[in-house]
Amino acid sequence: MYIRVLGAGAGGGFPQWNCNCPNCKSLRLDLFSGKPRTQSSIAISADKQNWLLVNASPDVRTQLEFFDEAHPPNAVRGTGIKAILLVDGQIDHCAGLLILREGEPLELYTTRVVKHDLSTHFPIITMLSHYCGVNHHVVPIDGGSFMINDISDIKITAHALASRAPPYSPNRNNATPGDNIGVTIEQISNGKKLYYAPGLGLIEAHVLSAMRQADCVLVDGTFWTDDELVKTCGFGKYARDIGHLPQSAKGGMIEVLSGLPEKIEKHLIHINNTNPILNEDSPEHAELARANIGVCYDGQTIVL
């Protein structure tokens, strides 16, 4: 299985356009030991020709421009992206659908809850009906697996997560199963499994079970501490209040990932611009390295 990290940043990317926090300021001044990142998205393939795009960030045009396998080799127009799977309806994961309006109808896979939000409260699906159109496919969250049209040797199993719906959704303060999902993506021929959950607020039993059965996990790396936004910016919300489990402290993501079998690859994705792990010279980055936890970056390729 080929996993391409198209974008590893959280909403706003890194540096964020209106942020002058120490990380963003240092990166702009070329005083930072680290890389810029676009908003989070990955692509999956078993053959390096037919790809599943998982989340369509607002940066998708740039991400695909620098992804050679997505370009048509022998056609005037076309793409290696055969379908799009959304794990939630957050703007940083779905606004890029509008950028993909110039081609054929989009093969879009979401839960019923996300489809409703994207047809009403943030009506991207309705808008796209006036351009390329959308062929929608329901993602089940009852434990059943499914396959993607035109992508062979890959099957997917999804489950609901305890996180938060987007601020525009009426489910924001009334969590509904399917607002957010984690997905296990398996290559059928070799049995290799990726677990992907860029927005993860709570480690429930079924989440931990899916992680332990995977060969690689790419999970929520948004914040280092629960109060990171408040301390760094002097305002904002706490990580857990907006549906993200911070890395540090008891019960945090480091503790969770360190409890998994050593053979499992562990990576953090969806990293906020304020997170000190973006600085590769920081003690926080070193702590992750000691725990064998990677920090995803744009253009990274993982092969299972």
Results as ranks from 00 to 15, higher is better:
I3N: 05
R4Q: 04
R4P: 00
V5R: 08
L6R: 05
W17T: 09
K25M: 00
D30K: 09
F32Y: 11
G34P: 01
S40F: 04
I44A: 11
K48I: 13
N50R: 14
L52I: 15
N55E: 14
P58S: 12
T62V: 12
Q63V: 06
L64V: 06
F66M: 11
P73I: 14
T79P: 06
G80I: 15
G80R: 13
K82H: 06
L85D: 12
V87A: 05
C94S: 14
A95R: 05
L98D: 11
I99A: 15
P105N: 10
E107M: 15
T111S: 07
S119Y: 01
P123H: 06
I125R: 02
L128C: 03
V134G: 02
N135V: 06
G143Y: 01
G143W: 02
N149P: 02
A162Y: 13
A165N: 11
N171L: 03
N174G: 03
G178I: 10
D179T: 15
E186G: 07
E186C: 06
Q187R: 13
S189G: 02
L200N: 03
H206N: 15
L208A: 11
R212E: 09
C216W: 11
V219T: 11
T225F: 06
F235M: 03
G236F: 00
G236I: 02
R240Y: 10
G243V: 08
G243F: 01
H244S: 13
A249M: 12
I254V: 13
V256A: 15
G259P: 07
P261G: 10
E262Q: 08
T274D: 01
N275A: 07
L278N: 09
D281I: 12
P283M: 15
E284V: 14
A286W: 00
L288E: 14
A289W: 00
N292E: 10
N292V: 11
G294T: 04
V295Q: 08
D298H: 02
